[in-house]
Amino acid sequence: MTDHTSAYDGLLGDDSAQWAFGQDFEDPLAGVDTTLAAGVDGAALAAYCLMLGDDALVHSHRLSQWASNAPDLEEDIALANIALDLLGQARLLLARAAAADPSVVPALPAGSPVPPEDALAFFRDDADFRNVRLVEGENGDFAVTTARLLLFSTHRLALLERLRDSVDPVLAAIAAKGVKEVAYHRDHAARWCVTLARGTEESRRRMRAGLDVVWPLHHELFRTHPVEATAAEQGFGVDPAGLAADVDVLLEQVLSVGGLDRPTVPPTGPLGRGAGRDGRHTEALGRMLAEMQVVARAHPTGRW
């Protein structure tokens, strides 16, 4: 098996080169040197990895909800592939966060075999999640999902392309692998966006409405959070404000091929003085996590 998204590879213990760090499921960073580069603050690196990891985890979760619900079998399979890619990125990023600063990992009962990346995914409350609000909303119809994937993947591709030069070798390798995946996600979303925009009257109406749903939360991706500022300063991360212009050009291209006007809906404001990166989320995240974490939390010393 050389499927680079096959989640079963780990069951066979085959040697496989397609994973950034092998595919040993027991420890995603097994054998990887996680020593911090000079000038990199572990706590800042961990906080930054949580942001990128939570974006991937939460968006993956939403996409996975399309399984058995997509418009056709081919699309069911495509969305699952994208969700699997993002889940893989999330796993590596959360593991990197835990290795960079073990204090971010929630405490579990003594003797719990739950690995740190799972403790981060399943035992943090919503206020500790650092994803942008864009990725956490309910799926809505296929147009909303398409619009969200377009905005998210365009941003993430621009980000990962730059992150390949991170001074943290682990982050750089995660980014290098992710670039290939996310380029595909962006292409998928852009093609559907144009198809729906130029399909039928109904699909065009829905595509516009879908863009209006997600557009107000788009801006948050480019607002520099103090953690991101530190990440850029120390050379392990990227200041997202610097991505806005490039991303905008690409989105404009897709909109124009689709004959779509740029949405004019106003941006969603912060909550108090914070937003997703500060743990200030929409109501949807709490509900999502209640479902996502229910089994894991019922068995804090369980083995899976």
Binding site: A7, S64, A67, L73, I77, A80, E117, D118, A121, W304
Partner: peptide
């Protein structure tokens, strides 16, 4: 159970499995 899988590894395996079933149907 995809949305409630209790570990990231199990979530990936289950999602891939359900995806395979779509493929088999196809």
């Amino acid at each position: 159970w995809i949305t409630r899988a209790p570990s990231l590894r199990r979530k990936a395996i289950l999602l891939a499995k359900v995806q395979d079933e779509a493929g088999h149907g196809l």
